[in-house]
Design a protein around this nucleic acid. Structure first.
Lengths: 379, 379
DNA sequence: CTCACTTCCTTCGATTTCGAAGATAAGCCG
DNA sequence: CGGCTTATCTTCGAAATCGAAGGAAGTGAG
């Protein structure tokens, strides 16, 4: 089950081009890889013989002979990916194109510490593999998202605020002892950004904002995930303008999170005598036109927009995608847009799109697949 | 004089590695290019025969035989680069390693419009070429920085605020009619960032802040210049927190530029009855311990730091380099640091360096050389 | 329908690149 | 000084890659 991919050389490039959906025929592979068409044919032949690629019907003509469409063979392998949240873990299996085979969600308490949590995930992987993957189809890589910063150099979790016992734990190494395979460990917002990027083809610079219980943000710069030193994308502890002064858990006053996160909105609603237990409840209230909820969401959007103004001027992205459970509340996006359009430089907003996230609930898992694929097919 | 470089294939890679200073010997070339040592030797032989590379003595041993040091041949060619400011143009010739051969500064009024300005620059180039470059040494590329946003797709200047007559002018095309060569047109802050990056080897993510008459910023993300859609790096029109309210030229209140730019400081000093005509005068006043000047610079630094706080959390760079004429005033950097350290996430500032820019006055020209080289040796 | 044209893919000899082995030139150390 | 180690660079047969030519399979115009 641990058979390595025979993809050291140019074959890896070809496989990756097909896996990521960038190429579907030998001709496209030749164009994108820079190899001669004849070499592509030879390599593709080998990949088909190795059971990694498969021919599947014909594509649409571009004015000449129709291309023979190439796909990753279903037997080429699977990836096991997880997205660890505070109380739940979402995990599943993907094929090598990053498309989901099976995804499920389990309750899970990260305060149990890294070992138990990771072992639970691995057990769940094993169960899914036995049930859904025929014998002989190899597992090609394992990846997980964690709700905290990850040092990209060591793949350890660093100074996570809500993950007691995880600080400096070598997550990747621990998983690698159980799976002798490429292992990916990444912050959940970063994974979400990587997943969302698949839904915006051609978009080189993308910001993905996750408005849920907290406020997360992932960044795609130049088509690649921007990690910085592992902490990139934090926008929740930016100081916002405000009349009063609210202390944030981080010890500073007036953080965005203290005003605009789902948690902050829930607190405010509860204080107003309106019962909510999850951010999704806020969306329901807004849809039911409860004025307090709508007004709060508007304020949250305006404050997020205010922060995004700075970042849009600076980063000048093509797209700002807004996801997370709160994003289902219409007024959020509207007021973010209003704030950004009003205050940003015209040049920065000229072609800017501020839009709902497209990837849906499995964004992070899709992102894990995309990154893992790159890793698994590069070595 | 317009002989193209014979560098389509892997030879281009090798030449680029030598030109950018990343490799100095055949062995290093082999390690960095991924080619076999034997292939490298063959290619290098050809490049030497073509007069592009030259052997120059021996390098230092790493424990075995000493490498034969490779350099770009002085006859390999030159680049002509300019950095256009509001009242001056700084221009010169570089060798293919990006090192300056000759640099001079002319007064120049960009309000004369693009044609006359660019023709003046080209005339100056021609004069320098006749005087400083032996016949037979070809010009390999031409580049210029402009004090406004450049659309990376069309290489036109777009909606520049202080360049009347330049809007949408095809700068690159105009230069290309005179020089049948690779042409580079780029925003000046971006060039400065590209130039500064040469002085921070190994630094993948870098912000360069230029504190002069205005406030500019260039961004290196993942080792490459981040352009966004052409407007990236603007930080001058970010709203800062303030008690009073000052209107900025852009039409919005309380822009950073209205408080912390050299122009704003000069206005404030003049109003206080202290005569200044250039940002450099402010530095003199600070060095002479004039309290009003020092206090103003401190305030400017604090406000810049406030804005940088947001960006450091978001972008999580390795280095923030502060340049521009105001950066010579000690208190500026100090108060920027204080603001960032105080408010940023510990994780983001853990390994952050906020330091004076290293590249000096010719940063933009060096950047033009670096980018142009990439362009000239890639095609 | 025919014919010109485009695109996709393969065949095959020429060229490039590789990689193992060896030659060359140092440093280290007793 | 003279082996021993390390590193750089070259030689040469094997393997991969290229590119021109051509066959295959489509489109579209007359």
């Amino acid at each position: 089950m641990n058979q390595r991919l025979p993809v050291q050389g140019p074959q890896g490039d070809l496989l990756r081009l097909v896996a990521t959906g960038r190429a579907e025929s030998r001709a496209e592979l030749a164009r994108l890889s820079g190899l001669a068409a004849s070499s592509v044919s030879l390599r593709v032949e080998e990949l088909i013989d190795a059971g990694l690629l498969a021919e599947e019907g014909a594509g649409t003509s571009r004015g000449g002979r129709r291309p023979r469409r190439l796909r990753l063979s279903p037997g080429a392998g699977v990836l096991a990916v997880a997205d660890l949240g505070a109380h739940h873990v979402r995990l599943g299996l993907l094929d090598l194109s990053g498309d989901p085979l099976v995804i499920e969600e389990h309750p899970c308490d990260i305060t149990e510490g890294p070992r138990r949590t990771l072992d639970r995930i691995a057990d769940a992987f094993d169960a899914l593999l036995t049930e859904h993957v025929p014998a002989g189809v190899p597992l090609r890589g394992v990846g997980t998202g964690v709700p905290g910063p990850v040092d990209p150099a060591t793949l350890r979790v660093v100074t996570p605020s809500r993950m007691p016992g995880w600080n400096d734990f070598p997550v990747a190494e621990h998983l690698a002892t159980r799976y002798d395979l490429p292992v990916l460990v990444e912050n959940d917002a970063n994974l979400m950004a990587a997943g969302e990027a698949r839904w915006w083809p051609g978009t080189e610079n993308l910001m993905v904002v996750k408005a849920g219980t907290g406020i997360g943000c992932g960044v795609i710069a130049g088509g690649r995930l921007h990690r910085g030193r592992g902490a990139a994308g934090d926008i929740s502890h930016v100081r916002v303008r405000s009349d009063s002064s609210v202390m944030c858990a981080c010890g500073h006053p007036d953080c965005l999170e203290a005003y605009a996160s789902g948690a902050a909105l829930m607190t405010a609603l509860t204080e107003a005598g309106i019962a909510v237990t999850r951010p999704a409840d806020i969306v329901t209230l807004v849809n039911d036109a409860v004025p307090e909820a709508t007004s709060l969401v508007r304020g949250a959007g305006r404050r997020m927009g205010e922060v995004l103004t700075v970042l849009v001027n600076f980063f000048n992205p093509d797209v700002v995608a807004v996801g997370g459970s709160l994003s289902a509340a219409e007024p959020l996006l509207t007021s973010i847009r209003a704030a950004v359009w009003e205050r940003c430089l015209p040049l920065a907003t000229r072609d800017l799109e501020i839009a709902p996230a497209r990837a849906g609930r499995d964004a992070a898992l899709q992102g894990a697949g995309a990154l893992l694929l790159e890793a698994a097919l590069t070595m």
